[in-house]
Amino acid sequence: MVDTILHLVLVLTMPPLLLGVIGKTKAAFAGRVGAPYLQPYYDLARLMRKGVVISDTTTWLFKAGPIITLAATLLAALLVPLGRHAAPISFTGDMILFAYLFALGRFFTTAAALDTGSSFEGMGAAREVTFSCLAEPALFFALITLTRLSGSLSLTPMLNHVTLFVWWDTGAALLLMMTGLFVVLLAENCRIPFDDPNTHLELTMIHEVMVLDHSGPYFGCILYGASLKLYLLGAFFLHIALPLSSGNSYLDWLIFALSMILLAMAIGVVESVMARLRLIRVPQLLVAAIILTAFSLILVVR
């Protein structure tokens, strides 16, 4: 019960912090002071108070997009175990629902982008769906490998199965999978090297360009939803990358929170040391991720 409440609290409060940490890390690399860690929270609060400008081209879908996307992501948040704890909802096949909830969100995000009639937003939407489509098989390969390892068809037991002992046994496979998943994590959340969330050069952007016309609380929903997605995929990734367990439930929560921050810093580092890929290279990297995860499956099945 306590775990469920903690899970909900963390899911509802912590995601924007990751953005703050990433920003701070990047600032540190650039030799700046940077915005405060809590800046994303301030942004959200400000957006919630701001008025709304809506394009006269749009239909109701434009406003429904952020809402349904957020709803789907929130439901997905209930499926992913955080740290070594069980997720609030866990059943046979929940990993499929997890993947498909993101897809549902994507459907509405991109549809809302197309609703504006702007060619820039259409461009972003096209990129978003195509790249996510390529990221999907990699995620599924990883899920299969985990199923094979854990013998389970649900996210909680599947992810909690990975421990240091498992690493000892199948380290090579897990390493390949981890690399692949990291690529998926970056791609799905539109981080560098796939996308640069900070630029406003519309021709090269993916996610930001899609939400150009959103404003006020709707944009707040999008911002929070995006950070939540990063949070969830990050948590997923950490189960494989840092399967640390202390045996004490509260200590585990702490470890989890710390490792999330660590992950945010890692992303910040990657963003600082890498350049954005040219768009035509993006599919290649994603295919590489598919191949990596597929190899991890082969290593496990062999």
């Binding site: 108070r49 709304v52 400008v53 809506i54 081209t57 937003e121 519309e202």
Partner: peptide
């Protein structure tokens, strides 16, 4: 639920319509 609460929220805020931002 989200739609309801957001609608509630937005109704209290100033609202404007414009053409799509054409960059």
């Amino acid at each position: 639920l989200l739609a309801f609460s957001l609608r509630h929220r937005v109704s209290a805020l100033p609202k404007a319509t414009a053409t799509t931002w054409g960059c």
